[in-house]
Simulated scan of single mutants.
Amino acid sequence: MSKNKLIIPFLKWVGGKRQLMPSIKENLPNDINKLNYFEPFIGGGAVFFDLQPKKGIINDFNSELINVYQTIKDNPEELIENLKLHINDSEYYYNIRSLDRSEDYNKLTNVEKASRIIYLNKTCYNGLYRVNNSGEFNSPFGRYKNPNIVNETVLKAVSNYLNKANIEIRNDDYADILLNIKKNSKSFVYLDPPYHPISETSNFTGYIQGGWDIFDQIRLKEVCDTLNDNNIKFLLSNSASQQIMDLYKDYNIEIVRANRFINSNPNNRGEVDEVLIKNYE
């Protein structure tokens, strides 16, 4: 299957990897095209859409996000028509945003729920997908003059790819995905978990209800150890925090520079150090 340049992320996502793709590609296994692909923290899918694997599993714990992927695969035309109904207006925006705070939300179809998330993502402040501890979307209106709410060409291209390739879309705990990969199978895992904060004030994991902490990072490292023991190749992205560097000291670590423009605190935007960690040469 040849790569289609129209297959690109359809959502703006915290920690998106589009600008880091050159560094990520340099660190991929040489036989990447022959391996089954697993991405358990799919997010905006920049790496996935760039590689366009023929077979694999994508997953995220965020059920709203996974519903968007599934809807694009199953009902692209209906989704596009629903997106055309939205308007770029502050009052309308807050009405749509508030739906997850009422019983009316449960009356929405999967298409309407997916359309809502795409609309909010395209029109909210700084493209910041953020939920509170109750799982309610809480980013303010962005006041863009002409947001691209209905990117019909991209949505159709992504839908076509998801239907032609052998891609399974899951909404599970990442460990349930990874610990079921067969030992010594020809598989590759790309991991882009919520980043560990460099400092207490920079902690931002608001796109996951409840957030992540160091114990989540330790659990992930233990799963990576199991992948390594099972001879499964993995590449992991994270912040260049000392805790992460210490945690993965037995693996190959490369520091890369990334520009981060999406953050709840404007002072935390800009060029930052991140790491790429892998268990192969």
Rank of each mutant, 00 (worst) to 15 (best):
F10W: 14
L79N: 02
R269F: 02
V111N: 09
R257F: 03
G16W: 08
K164P: 02
E152S: 05
E39R: 11
L6T: 11
Q209N: 10
E274H: 10
L128G: 03
R130P: 03
I117L: 15
E271Y: 04
K84Q: 15
G44V: 11
Y280I: 00
F204D: 15
G15T: 00
K164V: 05
G15C: 07
F261L: 09
D60N: 08
R143W: 07
I96C: 05
I169A: 01
G206M: 07
L155Q: 05
K12A: 04
M245C: 09
N126D: 07
R18S: 15
E77T: 12
C224P: 05
K183W: 02
I255Y: 05
K182Q: 15
T109P: 07
S202Y: 04
N95T: 11
I80P: 01
N151V: 01
F49G: 13
Y92T: 08
Q243I: 12
R257I: 11
I214F: 12
N268T: 01
L65W: 05
S2I: 15
G56S: 12
G211M: 13
D89A: 08
L220E: 03
N75F: 15
E81D: 14
K183M: 03
K233Q: 13
N279M: 04
A258I: 04
P53T: 01
T226Y: 09
F141D: 01
V223G: 10
S90Q: 15
D250H: 10
L83G: 08
S115A: 15
L65S: 05
E281M: 06
K107Q: 13
V275Q: 04
E271A: 07
K3N: 15
S241E: 05
L85N: 13
I58Y: 11
I214E: 15
I253Y: 11
A175V: 09
V275E: 06
N160F: 06
I262W: 03
N95A: 11
N110Q: 12
D31T: 01
I208L: 14
V223W: 12
G206R: 06
K249Y: 08
N184F: 09
Y280M: 00
L236E: 10
N259Y: 10
I66F: 11
S139L: 03
D60I: 02
R260Y: 06
L85Y: 04
K249V: 11
D246L: 07
I232F: 04
S187E: 02
E152Y: 00
I96H: 08
L83N: 05
Y37R: 13
Q243D: 06
I177C: 01
H86Q: 14
I42H: 07
L235C: 05
Y251N: 10
A114S: 03
T109N: 06
D172E: 15
S23E: 15
V275W: 00
G270C: 02
N59S: 10
G135K: 00
N4C: 14
S139D: 01
H86R: 11
I169N: 02
Y129E: 00
S90Y: 09
N228K: 02
E112T: 04
N180L: 10
D229T: 13
T205G: 09
K183Q: 15
Q242Y: 10
I32S: 02
T205A: 14
N252Y: 12
D246I: 06
E81T: 12
V275Y: 04
D50W: 00
R219F: 13
Y105H: 07
A258M: 03
G127E: 06
D173I: 11
D50L: 01
N27H: 12
L162K: 09
